[in-house]
């Protein structure tokens, strides 16, 4: 085929074209979009926001926050429905430490990385946590002791609680050495927590002085509440005779038991004392009257004078200087010596 010589490219120009094409291809292959200063700034802003929006305590928490195991050495005992722990939520942890140390002989250990949280010990056994939490300005609320009741499966308990009208206040979370826990309000509004201890539950023996021994739910409807807690913890429910004085409404008292032991009670408020439903947790003491007097000398209050309970055991209802309610109870081996087994 004949080609016009003028149109035929020379070998040199062909080589130039080929080189240029190759360079273009390579440039196309290696070309990358670049960030302008504005784009880079946007990316950095997004990263900064991500970091800032992530709560700093939470970032530090998983590394630093380690609660002591509930039982040491670990055991395989589990006592569903038993009061195994309590946390005080208050505005002044230092004042609370001073008060409870003087009252019960509690000692304390700080939690690494947490200036607002301490653990209280009795005879080297952890019994309670104290957490500082500021109240928003204008909020009229009272510090409180939050009871932790033992469960085997927090997720299952959460499901039952919510299906039965309870409200989840803090979602299930696992803490190394401690186990899984979550916080709820029952249908009447009383706040409680459940804990599936990874080290087992404390043994079923009489609490030592300074340890939690009992918990009473004060509520407007013990009947319905007992049914709720029975569903969650599998309690056997025993009704006690009403103790109303002549002319006053009958006060209902129900004993909640599991594993053949009484774990707590659900009670009507005393006549004329309606309030917000709450769990009232009791610490074992050697002398309820002396403890009440000491509480007053330390700035606390006596809400119910020391008195003999219906079955024996002298109790008193107290409040710490910040207003958190708790009970104290005398109890001896003889008091429960007749326990049905």
């Amino acid at each position: 085929m004949q080609i016009d010589r003028k149109l035929r490219p020379s070998s040199a120009s062909l080589a130039r074209v080929a080189r240029r094409a190759a360079l273009t291809r390579r440039a196309a292959l290696t070309r990358r979009p670049v960030l302008t200063s504005r784009a880079a700034l946007t990316a950095l802003t997004a990263l900064t926001a991500l970091t800032v929006l992530t709560p700093a305590p939470a970032l530090a928490a998983s590394a630093a926050f380690e609660l002591p195991p509930l039982v040491s050495p670990a055991s395989t005992e589990h006592h569903v429905g038993k009061l195994v722990w309590a946390d005080l939520v208050t505005t002044d942890v230092d004042a609370a430490k001073t008060f409870y140390a003087a009252l019960f002989g509690w000692t304390y250990r700080d939690i690494s990385g947490q200036k607002d949280f301490v653990i209280a010990f009795v005879n080297d056994r952890p019994v309670a946590g104290m957490i500082r939490r500021e109240l928003p300005k204008g909020e009229q609320r009272r510090p409180a002791w939050l009871p932790f009741l033992a469960v085997r499966d927090v997720a299952q308990a959460a499901q039952i609680i919510q299906a039965r009208g309870g409200k989840e206040l803090a979602v299930e979370h696992n803490y190394p050495q401690r186990g899984r826990q979550a916080v709820f309000a029952d249908p009447q509004g009383a706040v409680f927590a459940v804990l599936a201890s990874s080290a087992g539950d404390p043994p079923d023996v009489l609490a030592a002085p300074g340890e939690w021994i009992w918990s009473s739910l004060m509520t407007v409807d013990p009947d319905t509440d007992a049914a709720f807690y029975q569903r969650v913890f599998g309690y056997e429910v025993y009704d006690l005779p009403a103790d109303n004085a002549p002319g006053t409404p009958a006060a209902q008292h129900l004993v909640l038991s599991s594993g053949e032991y009484a774990r707590g009670s659900a009670n009507s408020f005393p006549a004329g004392r309606l309030g917000h439903p709450h769990w009232l947790n009791f610490v074992r003491v050697a002398d309820a009257a002396a403890t009440a007097a000491k509480a007053v000398s330390l700035g606390g209050q006596v809400l119910s004078e020391p008195h003999l309970d219906r079955h024996g055991g002298r109790i008193a209802i107290l409040a710490d200087p910040a207003g958190a309610r708790f009970g104290v109870m005398e109890w001896t081996e003889n008091d429960s010596g007749e326990a049905a087994k």
Binding site: R141, A251, V255, A262, H276, I315, G337
Partner: peptide, 21 residues
């Protein structure tokens, strides 16, 4: 986790809420 500020103060001896023997 705080309690509402309800009827508070001296509550009398009506608390018979302890465990049975």
């Amino acid at each position: 986790f705080y309690e509402p500020f309800d009827n508070y103060g001296y509550e009398g001896p009506g608390y018979l809420v302890g465990p049975p023997r």
